[in-house]
Every structure is written in C-alpha cells, then in structure tokens.
Design a protein around this nucleic acid. Sequence first.
DNA 1: CCTGTCAAGTGAAAAATTTCATAAAATTAC
DNA 2: GTAATTTTATGAAATTTTTCACTTGACAGG
Lengths: 213, 213
Amino acid sequence: MKRIPEVTVERLIKYLRFVEEMEKDGMRNLTAKQIAESLGLNPHLVRKDLAYFGQFGKRGKGYETEKLGETLRKIMGLDKRWKVALVGVGNLGSALLRYPGFKERGFDVVCAFDTSPQKIGRQIEDIKIESMDKMEEIVSKENIKIAILSIPKEAAEEVSDRLVKAGVMGILNFAPRYLQYSYPFRVLNVDLSLYLESLTFYLENDGKKNLSM
Amino acid sequence: MKRIPEVTVERLIKYLRFVEEMEKDGMRNLTAKQIAESLGLNPHLVRKDLAYFGQFGKRGKGYETEKLGETLRKIMGLDKRWKVALVGVGNLGSALLRYPGFKERGFDVVCAFDTSPQKIGRQIEDIKIESMDKMEEIVSKENIKIAILSIPKEAAEEVSDRLVKAGVMGILNFAPRYLQYSYPFRVLNVDLSLYLESLTFYLENDGKKNLSM
DNA sequence: CCTGTCAAGTGAAAAATTTCATAAAATTAC
DNA sequence: GTAATTTTATGAAATTTTTCACTTGACAGG
C-alpha cells in the first residue's frame, strides 16, 4: 500500500463530514463531483484520495453513501469511541469540556485535570476535576491515548512529556507553544491567535497581485 | 513580486512567534537554521520563505532579530491592532471572549453578539453582549473587518453572509460547517473535533508502513 | 590583509501533489 | 440491444513545493 500524504488525511475527514451529512439527508449515492463541490476541490483529487484505500466506487453511479461513510470511519479509526483526557480547566478548558462536538464525533472526555485547589473536586458535565498529581495514574489505568491540553504555555512542555510517558500517543495542544514529538507520537498544535494572524496577511495584502488565492 | 504560497504564509506566522520569543530572550541575531530547528523544518525553506519579501539577512551572520520581527509583522499586517467582532456567546464563545491570547497578539474583540435574551446586556470582560439584530449596524459603524463565529452550525451560513454584507472580510469559523467565500473574502474553518479525528488516523494506523510521518 | 568558516540568497534539481487524459464499467435513453 | 452519458480508476503530465548545490558577502583569527 502506498504512503498516504498528510494533506489527504486532512481531506478524508472533511469528506467523511460531508458523507455523514448526506447520509442523514437520505442520499443513497454520492459522486466524487458532489463531494468535491462541497469543499471547493477538484473531483479527480477526491477520487485519487479515496483510491488510496482501494476501489469502492461504482462507475457511472458514484459511491454508496453508507458504505463510503463506513469505510472512511474505519480508515480514520472512527469506527469506535476514543477516551480523551483534558488537562487544564481554565476558560478554554471548561468550554472544551462542555463542547458537545467531541462526544458527537466519538470522543469521550473521561477525565479532567487541573492544578488549582479551587477547581479540583468540582464537576463539569459529569466529569470530576482531578488533581494533576493523579494524571499519570489515571491516564495509564484508563488506557487513554488522546489528551487535550489547555494550559498556560509555560507548562505545556512539562505536562506533555508527562502525558507521553503515561502512554498518551496523540495530543491536541491549545497552548500557544509549538510542541513536537517524533514518531509514533502525534501533536496537533491549535493556536487560536495564529489563525487570526493568518487572516490578517490576506486582509492586508488584499488586492495586491502577489497573492495566492 | 512572486505569488506567496499559502503554506508560506502559515509558516511566516510561526517564524514570527519564534522571533518574538527570542527577541524577548534578548537574542540580537537569529539564523535560518535556528528558526528552522525550532519548528522542525529545513533551513533552506526558511530562507526561501523570507526571501519572497526581499533580502533582510546578513551573510555569515543571520537575521537581526528585531528587524526581522518588525518586517514579519509588517508583512503579516500585524504592525497595527485589529478590531474583531465575536458572534455567539455560548460556552466556546465566552471562553474565546476571555481568551487573553487575542489581545496579546494585537486583536481587540470590541463587540459580541448573541440571540439569547438572557445573554444580551450581560457583560464579559468589558464587552457588553448585544443583540444580533444590531450586528450589521455596529460592525459597519466600527468598521470591523474580522469576525469570530462560535454559533451552532445551522446558523453559520446565514450569519456569515450577513457579516460579509456588513463589511467583514475575514471570518474565523468555529462552527462545524465548512464555509466558503471567494476572493477577496477569507474564511478560516476551525473545527475542533476534526482535529481529534485527524489524530486518530495516525493512532489507528500507527506502526503500519503506509504512513507519511 | 589573507584565509577559513559561516550563513544568506538564488537558480536548478528533486520530490510531492494536483490536474489531466484515457480507459472501463455501469446506467440511461432510445 | 445499441448508443450516449455518467462516473470511477489509473497512469501520465503539469504544477507546486521542498531540497540541494553553488555563489557571494560578512566576520574572525592569525
């Protein structure tokens, strides 16, 4: 099997989103063209992306919505639920704890940690906030592979090291510090202000001809 | 001037982050190698990215930290402050209102909107929550160009259309619905569960040889 | 002031990614 | 049942992006 480019993986998730939405709408079949249009892509690209995983389309007809969804979920490891640990229950952290989208998409935040004594013991959405001293113990015991980090940037490195040692394989990092681990660990750095900053480049240079659009 | 690839823009912001951090640490000079290492990139790529905007490095020495920071900020439109409107003061929205990172990076959330009568009139961090009926009026009057959208996905399209009509040029969209506008408008779709989903692909396929790492 | 080393800048080469062209299968229209 | 149309699949071409090789300027040491 050929190597799957990272850009393809990112698109696959978006395809899955669209496929599931169409599934809900009762569409029995979907064509690459439809998927592509919904995301502003070239249909050839969609087919090529899907073809990495074998051929599950029908010529002249398209893809069976349900089967495509199932296959994509399987490819992405989304055919089962994942347990997630959340570290750092500040403003952002508690909003993430309450964010219904994770559960909807198969991710169960099963524990939350903080250092602040005021927060420890409190409960948000069924989840009791635990002391960060217990983090390794609980994460190991529960066999948690994914963690969400919403802590100050100063603590990011130390805490993520501890998580990795406790068995976590993937981290979604909201702290504005770039974290890196080598294979097989994965970090996804989500820097909220960074997104705004990439917007301003285009706003600022809007109209000039040196733009990639 | 040559067209700037989107991937370059994304890296430039990260360079700026590192440069500012080093500036704070008192480093007078920075080399492409140092910048590259901090982000796990090839130094040639860093030089090429910077060279799009002219030559501001010194051979044998590197880049003057301060000047590089200034230049990058100017390129990115970050040499001034930006006013931002926040729409949707739910869990995520109010966390974003309280998120200090935006202000730190030059973005002032100056107004917030919601539909819920319970929320309208309340105040979070100096910002009074206004009715969404007043959105267009205030956004136009204040000449706001950037909006953060943290509303349910069902409302995303309608609200973003209204924002665009009111003069907004860039949207940071947290609603899990893919929004698209054509040039010169920009949308950055930030789908939180989507990030987790891209992690699971790698966790699931970990160890298999078909991976891009 | 010469020599060696370092690092930016630049054009060419390589690699990766996307688009295109074509073939083949399925469906629809006649 | 045949022709036309639709749409996937796949290998080739084009494009984009990254890496490499080389040149040049700057500085340090002798």
